[in-house]
């Protein structure tokens, strides 16, 4: 089943055309990496799927519904969860409260607290439940943001540079956590990522953006052979030199 479909999406900021007709589809349970040089439009694309930014043209379908004009909160409740490039936690609230807010629909406060603790347990943060979000380390903050998103029981998870700034041990742990989520819950993962080594441990499909256009959609191992990708990343004169 196709869970996400992006059709001819365009976006400009002022005179700057950031996305120029992007189209792709994602199947249920798939893990897709989105890479590209800085400024190629990756985060904008993720923001359009999440609903934080409205596209100028084109449509976004999720689970067969056109969600192009839905609020981010509606998309979240439909099952599209996301994390942010720079973590956006509720800093003055505790880790537990951060997760509780995402859970808050349709149950009593004690039941919500119980469920939030379970989710913190799942990401290995239950010992920090009563700590303020602002007091957590970067790795813990990233986990907490993941936990908060998981509380929505997402079917699609959008992760914006979830590995950025983490040490190899923390990266390893998050890779394992994401694998487990994919296997146990069948969550579709879409990762915007610069840490390719970590990304390639998870994904078998990569989209490459360059200057607002989708220039590659395929397996990671074919990426290094693709002329357009080489040109975008390394420049014209490296094309044809091979690996």
């Amino acid at each position: 089943m196709r869970v996400l479909e992006v059709i001819e999406v365009e976006k400009s900021f002022g005179g700057n055309k950031v996305l120029k007709g992007i189209s792709f589809g994602v199947e249920e349970g798939e893990t897709v990496g989105i890479v590209g040089p800085n400024g190629s439009g990756k985060t904008t694309l993720l923001n359009i799927v999440g609903g934080v930014i409205r596209q100028d043209g084109g449509r976004v379908l999720a689970f067969g519904n056109d969600i192009s004009s839905r609020r981010p909160s509606e998309r979240a409740r439909l099952g599209i969860g996301r994390t942010f490039q720079i973590t956006r936690l509720f800093s003055n609230l505790t880790a537990l409260e951060n997760v509780m807010i995402a859970l808050h629909y349709g149950s009593s406060l004690p039941a919500t607290r119980e469920k939030a603790l379970e989710i913190l347990e799942e990401v290995g943060l239950s010992h920090k439940a009563k700590d303020r979000a602002s007091s957590l380390s970067l790795a813990q903050r990233k986990r907490l943001e993941l936990a908060r998103t998981l509380a929505l029981q997402p079917r699609i998870l959008l992760l914006d540079e979830v590995f950025a700034g983490l040490n190899p041990v923390s990266i390893r742990e998050i890779v394992d956590l994401l694998r487990r989520l994919r296997e146990e819950r069948g969550i579709t993962l879409i990762l915007v990522e610069h840490v390719l080594k970590a990304l390639f441990q998870l994904t078998e499909r990569v989209l490459v953006l360059s200057e607002g256009r989708l220039i590659f959609d395929g397996k990671p191992e074919d990426m290094a052979q693709n002329e357009e990708v080489i040109k975008a990343y390394l420049g014209e004169r490296y094309v044809g030199k091979g690996s």
């Binding site: 999440g50 981010p72 909160s73 979240a76 942010f84 956006r88 509720f90 807010i101 808050h104 929505l152």
Partner: peptide, 9 residues
């Protein structure tokens, strides 16, 4: 923005 992302209208 984060509030919206976790389903708060």
């Amino acid at each position: 923005v984060a509030a919206e992302s976790v389903g708060v209208n």
